[in-house]
């Protein structure tokens, strides 16, 4: 990786009960990142004391690499990003889930892609090229593909994966977008990409493998489908 000397990457890791996954994800980040970076852990008062684990990791890798910015209680993803951005010192920000479904090995590819096309945003995608998922049954795949098809038809977003949350942003772009987005939770990811297009930002894509370690349908309940439908309609009517 030919990292530009001035470029620094801040990885935002919002955590909630990730005591088991956090050490692994941090270890993998350290292994795969050869550039200038910092890992900002935003723990929302996890009952399993994820913060204690984060402190141990800080002891091993140092306060420069591991930055702890905990919050008292669970306040939602959007505000976690705002909180993280405030403390980020990099000019690029990488957002990913801390549950190991997003593998840090893709980050060098994100960085390369960004440099190659001078993109404002690079989004990981499960839906093109070598991208894919692990741990999804047929039903879940059909729902996911159906939802994605509907989204592409209705919103024409110019990006293939709207609900994924493994992305790299220019810091100033992310700042502007977080302020432009009003949705919460799941729909937030969709709105970010749609608004990005609206504001004229360029989006590059990198295929990723999404390893879902939670088997079954626990993560795709009726509630999530309703949330998705609402979000889709909201964006359809307003953007």
């Amino acid at each position: 990786m030919s990292a530009n000397k001035e470029d620094k990457y801040s990885i935002l890791l919002p955590t909630y009960n990730e005591r088991e996954n956090l050490p692994i994800i941090v270890w993998l980040l350290v292994k795969h990142l050869k550039c200038d970076y910092e890992i900002i852990i935003i723990d929302d008062g996890s009952p399993d004391n994820t913060l204690e684990v984060a402190k141990q990791l800080q002891g091993i890798y140092g306060e420069k690499k591991i930055v702890l910015r905990p919050r008292e209680k669970k306040l939602g993803l959007g505000t976690a990003y705002v909180h993280g951005i405030k403390h980020a010192t990099g000019n690029f920000i990488i957002i990913m889930d801390a549950d190991l479904s997003h593998h840090p090995k893709f980050i060098p590819q994100f960085i390369e892609k960004q440099k190659g096309g001078d993109y404002d945003i690079v989004s990981g995608t499960r839906y093109i090229g070598n991208g894919g998922v692990f741990g999804w049954d047929l039903k879940r795949k059909v729902i996911s593909r159906g939802a994605n098809f509907l989204t592409q038809i209705l919103l024409r977003p110019g990006a293939s994966d709207l609900t994924g949350s493994f992305r790299l942003y220019r810091k100033d772009v992310l700042e502007k977008m977080v302020n432009a987005c009003v949705s919460k939770g799941y729909v937030f990811q969709m709105e970010m990409i749609i608004r990005a297009r609206q504001l004229g930002y360029s989006i590059g894509e990198v295929p990723i493998s999404f390893v879902d370690r939670v088997y079954g349908e626990s993560k795709l309940g009726g509630n999530e489908i309703i949330q998705f439908a609402k979000g889709l309609l909201y964006l359809f009517a307003t953007t």
């Binding site: 190991l100 998922v133 692990f134 047929l138 159906g146 390893v211």
Partner: peptide, 18 residues
């Protein structure tokens, strides 16, 4: 949708690697 579902990659290798 059928075609895309059928060609949705199963990332078995990625899971083993993890």
């Amino acid at each position: 949708i059928c075609y895309k579902t059928a060609t949705f990659n199963d990332c078995v290798e990625a899971s083993k690697e993890l």
